[in-house]
Design a protein around this nucleic acid. Structure first.
Lengths: 325, 325
DNA sequence: CCGGTTTAGTAAATCGGTTTATCTAACTGC
DNA sequence: GCAGTTAGATAAACCGATTTACTAAACCGG
């Protein structure tokens, strides 16, 4: 693993390091044809491969961007990440994907480490709990885009879906179908998506003249979820429809329902807020609220790229509409 | 974005760069208590954050490893990647995930670029078509592990599943259930997994005294797949069971089947070779061959880590058993 | 043939750290 | 009181590129 450096190439070709550098950067303006050839040959015979680290140090660009997802097992996150990667591929920028596991400590650690590694920008699915850190990045004019969730700080480019509105419509759809007892299952209300979806649920009920029954709102971690569903379905008045606030809730629901012998469509109408792979193969009675993950990823990537290129506009929140299927 | 450097800290604390460096690397052996404190303060007031790039350049370690997956939309790949990330997290190594899209050219580009970025090692789902490149990495003693697919070169650590055996068993299961006309759908036979699975299929049939009917082997790209399925199901003797060689084939099959009104379980028994998220929510009549993705990822990561630490053993191929569900 | 321009190439500084060899002052013991 | 340690800190080289300022030779018109 005796690495070949530019100096070696220069020696082999009988020119200076500077000239080799010019060659590699295709600044041929004042370069003799024979010199060019000599360098080419030297590179070939030595099997030289440039060291991007050294270059990055000098140029203060790494051509690396960081993606910090809240939960990598969430299909939506992978779809967004993929779109981001695709976008940056055309500019020869690579993405590093890190998984914060919805843990603010982990998130902090990753942000700091990616910045220490000098990545050119960051796309974050924020936990929302590191406001001081977010603030400092904005203040330093460091390229950042938030995806999926809003945070308090308004001076950051943000790409989200219309959580409240699409939940509202889904609940409206339940009501139109005649449902009176509609439940809502959600993980702890720590991030904006969950809060917004719950808001849409409540608003839809209220607007339809139905009362919001707190017993029908199941809030808890995935670990607690089954127990709470148990409670929900042992109420005197059982729900006939249920809104699952994301895919992980849905999985738990699926297990629960299988155990209890409850049938989707017949006993219980369900809408899931999330993109699910293979959803076309699932029972047709289920509905899904699909977020335009690819477009959102693309938009986030564009916004980040603009910042990296210093073509900053005013920070803005971009809201994408979801579709119910 | 006026970055604070070590020199600034040194000036602020009234010591030399070297001392600051010692401090940061926790080499306190000969360091006065007051010096330590002064540096600590200086770092605090300036908000200094070290530049890992510079450190990596000198130390020739980036604490970055690369993962090149053949297809990032493949659920199995993301599971493996996640396990790899988890493993390396404990050693403060980050993973860069790149998507080669089963394109040897792209794969080559990524390998070269990741090496240029000086990543400490590579875990690859190989296309199998860049043998010269693989060879050169091995020869240079560069840490590499192959996952999911074998390549010709035997001197590389490789982690795979028992493709042939588990397919064999699945087909045997079909036969025991009484099926005589068993079809096999697969993407082009360009990588070892597909070839090995087909081999298992053929062997199971032959061993059971059934003949291998070439009409029942559907081989083609995802784009062609539907047309070929059409042909398959317009044969005089139609298959009553089908083996889908991976999840992408299965998706296409699902679409096809829905259009035709064929029913899983009743008209057609199906086994899918692959881990599918939410498979527990799909029709119970389907069977899946599940690869132990997490363990495989972990093993691959361990093997890479050993190489990075220069604790090399003899390269070996590790075969994990799959389970049918 | 001479001053100015163009062409081709280079020396040296730089990026921000790590590391090695060295230095000084205080401390030992005899 | 002096050689030998040792604790504490530093100067300078180094990692492998980029980039700026500079030089030397060729060229060119009047």
């Amino acid at each position: 693993m005796e690495r070949v450096t530019m100096a070696d190439v220069a020696r082999e070709a009988g020119v200076s390091k500077s000239t080799v550098s010019q060659y590699l950067n295709k600044r041929y303006e004042y370069m003799g044809e024979k010199t060019k050839q000599k360098i080419e040959e030297a590179i070939e015979t030595l099997g030289y491969q440039p060291n991007f680290l050294a270059r990055s140090l000098k140029q203060k660009r790494t051509s690396l961007i960081g993606i910090i997802v809240a939960n990598i097992t969430h299909y939506f996150s992978t779809e967004v990440s993929r779109a981001i990667e695709d976008f940056f591929h055309q500019y020869d920028l690579q993405a590093i994907v890190c998984n914060a596991d919805d843990d603010p400590e982990k998130e902090k650690k990753y942000i700091e480490m990616l910045r220490a590694k000098q990545v050119d920008g960051l796309i974050i699915f924020p936990t929302g709990k590191n406001n001081a850190l977010y603030e400092s990045m904005v203040k330093q004019n460091y390229p950042v885009v938030f995806v999926d969730r809003k945070v308090e700080n308004r001076d950051v480019y943000t790409v989200i879906t219309d959580n409240t509105e699409s939940t509202y419509k889904a609940i409206q759809y339940f009501i139109k179908k005649g449902h009176q007892n509609i439940a809502f299952a959600v993980q702890p209300l720590t991030v904006s998506t969950r809060i917004d979806r719950l808001e849409g649920y409540k608003k839809a009920l209220t607007d339809a003249g139905l009362e919001v029954n707190p017993d029908f709102i199941v809030e808890g971690s995935i670990a607690e979820m089954k127990g709470k569903l148990e409670q929900l379905f042992s109420l005197d008045v059982k729900p006939t429809a249920l809104f699952a606030a994301n895919d992980r809730v849905f999985i738990t629901l699926g297990e629960f329902i299988k155990e209890k012998g409850i049938k989707f469509g017949e006993d219980l109408d369900v809408v899931v807020f999330d993109n699910i792979p293979f959803s076309q193969m699932l029972e047709t009675s289920l509905s899904f609220i699909i977020q335009p993950a690819a477009e959102m990823g693309r938009k986030a990537a564009e916004l980040l790229y603009q910042q990296i290129q210093k073509e900053n506009q005013e920070p803005e929140v971009f809201v994408f509409p979801s579709k119910m299927m």
